[in-house]
Design a protein around this nucleic acid. Structure first.
Ligand SMILES: NC(=O)c1ccc[n+]([C@@H]2O[C@H](COP(=O)([O-])OP(=O)(O)OC[C@H]3O[C@@H](n4cnc5c(N)ncnc54)[C@H](O)[C@@H]3O)[C@@H](O)[C@H]2O)c1
Ligand SMILES: NC(=O)c1ccc[n+]([C@@H]2O[C@H](COP(=O)([O-])OP(=O)(O)OC[C@H]3O[C@@H](n4cnc5c(N)ncnc54)[C@H](O)[C@@H]3O)[C@@H](O)[C@H]2O)c1
Lengths: 221, 221
DNA sequence: CTCGTTTTGTTCTCGCGTTCACAAACTCCT
DNA sequence: AGGAGTTTGTGAACGCGAGAACAAAACGAG
């Protein structure tokens, strides 16, 4: 994808590791809340559901934050991972499409507690503009540019029907949004430099169905 | 061709390919609805957002369903992929935890159109048991076993708070459910033979934040 | 101070997934 | 029928990630 040609001091962390860091962060938060001061790689690996060798290797990309013979200081490591991911300050986020799913997302408390702040809810349907969801009032989609500008929004969430998703994405990119989380069941095309991640319930279920079908084929023999 | 010898009828498809088959299926459905009869691997790859070589290799694990010099018959290939995934018939599904997210999932029309049928909505909170969501009435969580038995349910969806998720998973497994889609932000531990997939909004956002942070570091130089 | 114990950080190897490149196979036109 | 053009299916090269294994480092006991 985006080739980072610059001879930068910033070490590049493997994508597979980046995807696991949030899991470690969550496990460390749970440990911290239960009063744990230090933990071994074995403990943390179990809490995160991964192999301990893999955990240590992942952490080694960040630096040497453990103590041999002792383990990791839970709060210290938690801060280091949060800093590496970039969630020590809140990221402003807009959600577009306040239907069934958009309502659930707006009401989701995990946003705020994990480094994100919903600054606006947008919908194209004028009949929704009266509504207030989770203390935030739903505004016209055309307010997007102004909101993005005023709040320095870099991350957008799309929860519209699939047919509208590409248009919404185009508008977001035009406003300067460079990271998109897409819940619509469609492939988005965006210019280089814009990251898109998708969440697709149907795909997950179909993967489960595939494996379920295989189990059923072998079992009754 | 590969005659289905009963001993080794099931070729094993790489996990990475399995994860992409639903994307191809969706792209083929879109093509079919737009009246397209045949398509090349290039066309389909573009619609699915992947490399055409990868697409052809993925399809080659299923068999030889294309015609050289011509391409693929859209409806024929669509049926073959659906059959391989196992979504030519509907899978019964139960959803546990009918809060914000559970409501959205119950109202999601993509379930039925993609090979799944919600047979029950379950919640532990008695005040929810009066409710009817998307034509299905919310029932007590303790009805789980009966519902699973009567409907032959193999797939369960967890949309409860994280603290309850492991208990719900244990109960599901005890009833005979062997595939779980987990929306709660926690690591589930299940016996071998049970598949778990997770959908975690916070993780996706944090991955975006990581890359966003890196962009911001390079840009202003 | 030295030795044994614990646990990290890293090296090495292996397997999987991605991509390239091309022969094989099919259609169409003359 | 034969040749030109098109597109599939796959062998081979390559790079990345997973996991095992171990040396290096810290700590405590005596
Ligand atoms: N509901 C779920 O559980 C679920 C699960 C997985 C995926 N999805 C996907 O998420 C998306 C939303 O699902 P939903 O159930 O909330 O649908 P919905 O129809 O309830 O809500 C869609 C909302 O988007 C708004 N909208 C339409 N076009 C718009 C535009 N151009 N700009 C701004 N807003 C616009 C509509 O006014 C509506 O409020 C769909 O693509 C769906 O496939 C939903
Ligand atoms: N809302 C979102 O957009 C969103 C996004 C990502 C993840 N999640 C996660 O999904 C889960 C549900 O989120 P929500 O916003 O719908 O929460 P919610 O509190 O609105 O709903 C949870 C429901 O689960 C029920 N419940 C609790 N314990 C139960 C048990 N033991 N058995 C059966 N039912 C039980 C509750 O009665 C409630 O109705 C949470 O774990 C949350 O972190 C939600």
């Amino acid at each position: 994808m985006t080739a980072r040609t610059s001879a930068e001091s910033t070490r590049d962390i493997p994508e597979a590791t980046v995807a696991r860091l949030p899991v470690y962060l969550r496990a460390l938060t749970t440990l911290s809340e239960s009063g744990t001061i230090t933990c071994s790689s074995e403990d943390l690996a179990q809490a995160a559901g991964v192999n301990s060798a893999k955990l240590r290797k992942d952490l080694s990309y960040l630096g040497s934050y453990g103590t041999r013979g002792v383990g990791y200081d839970v709060d210290y490591l938690r801060y280091q991972i949060a800093r590496e991911i970039g969630v020590t300050q809140d990221w402003p986020v807009v959600i577009v499409g306040i239907g069934n799913l958009g309502h659930a997302l707006a009401n989701y408390s995990g946003f705020r507690s994990r480094g994100f702040r919903v600054v606006a809810l947008l919908d194209a349907d004028p009949t929704r503009h009266d509504e207030v969801v989770a203390g935030i009032d739903v505004r016209p989609f055309d307010d997007l540019e102004q909101i993005v500008r005023e709040n320095g929004v870099a991350i957008g969430v799309i929860a519209t029907p699939a047919i509208a998703a590409q248009d919404v994405a185009d508008r977001m990119v035009a406003c300067g949004i460079s990271s998109i989380l897409n819940f619509a069941a469609t492939v988005l095309s965006v210019p280089a430099g814009v990251d898109v991640r998708k969440v697709d319930l149907s795909i997950e279920l179909q993967i489960l169905a595939y494996h379920e079908q295989r189990k059923a084929q072998v079992e009754p023999a």
